[in-house]
């Protein structure tokens, strides 16, 4: 079988297959906090040799495993699916496992700190409970009335597409903890909860849209959004968060969804 694409390698493929290690010296400036040791948070620099094609998570592991076992962060899948390792890297919310060192200018110290707006418990670990409470408060489950069909509920591909974007959410909190409104007022539901409400409001099978819209019509609800787009920038899943929030606002006015 002819395979024209394999005859000529792109420069990108050649680079990807290059096995030579190009470790460089990188400084990570990490915001440390451990109330067992001190009530004050402080910055600590770690220097290490690492290939810039590696992830920030790889660097954090290298520091923890080779330099300082007390450095504490959450992580699990290491490829952007589980949502454990959202943190503020060079001032921007990202997943440490989805950020390559080469993409964030390793010539200067790379700053890493906990996401904002949630209580820091130790180093990069925050209290996620208020975040999940807001999620639970929007009734994030399918609500239906009447008898269940024997087989599956039918849904057209177009109706399925309507809420596809917001089904991608991994609840990492990168969006909510990038929102200036949330920083100032933790009572605000925050983008992630609204995204998950959107996922059901615009699902043609769901019949709980009115209830959810009333919840989000609250003073801490969707009207607090100031459309700064921080959330959209922060989302590691590429969800158009601000657009979803706007669609919920519009549904509240028109009651059409």
């Amino acid at each position: 079988m002819s395979t024209p694409t394999l005859d000529k390698h792109s420069a990108a493929l050649d680079a990807a297959e290059n096995t030579a290690s190009h470790a460089i010296k990188v400084t990570f400036r990490i915001r440390r906090f451990n109330p067992e040791v001190s009530e004050e948070a402080s910055w600590q620099d770690f220097e290490l040799d690492i290939d810039p094609k590696e992830r920030v998570l790889d660097a954090l592991h290298k520091i923890k495993w080779e330099q300082d076992g007390t450095l504490t962060f959450r992580r699990s899948c290491a490829h952007g699916i589980c949502g454990s390792d959202a943190m503020r890297i060079n001032g921007k919310n990202r997943l440490a496992c989805k950020t390559l060192i080469k993409d964030i200018n390793p010539q200067k110290p790379i700053t890493v700190e906990a996401i904002k707006g949630l209580t820091v418990l130790k180093d990069l670990v925050v209290d996620m409970e208020p975040f999940f409470q807001a999620y639970r408060d929007v009734m994030p489950f399918l609500i239906t009335k009447g008898n269940e069909p024997t087989r599956e509920r039918l849904q057209t591909a177009e109706d399925r597409e309507r809420f596809d974007d917001t089904t991608k959410c991994i609840l990492c909190a990168a969006c909510t903890s990038s929102c200036p409104v949330f920083w100032n007022d933790g009572q605000y539901f925050g983008p992630a909860a609204i995204v998950n409400a959107h996922r059901f409001i615009f699902d043609s099978r769901d019949e709980g849209g009115e209830q959810r819209l009333e919840i989000l019509n609250d003073k801490d609800g969707v009207w607090r959004c100031r459309t700064t787009f921080n959330c959209t920038d922060a989302c590691p899943r590429g969800i158009e968060v601000t657009k979803a929030i706007q669609e919920v606002k519009r549904a509240l006015i028109t009651r059409r969804f």
């Binding site: 399918l142 087989r151 599956e152 057209t156 591909a157 596809d164 059901f200 099978r205």
Partner: peptide, 20 residues
């Protein structure tokens, strides 16, 4: 098992006639 998940809300991809 699949039908239960659909009824719980799982957004499966759909065929042109709306089934899973």
């Amino acid at each position: 098992s699949v039908l239960d998940l659909e009824k719980m809300g799982l957004p499966f991809n759909r065929t042109p006639n709306g089934t899973i």
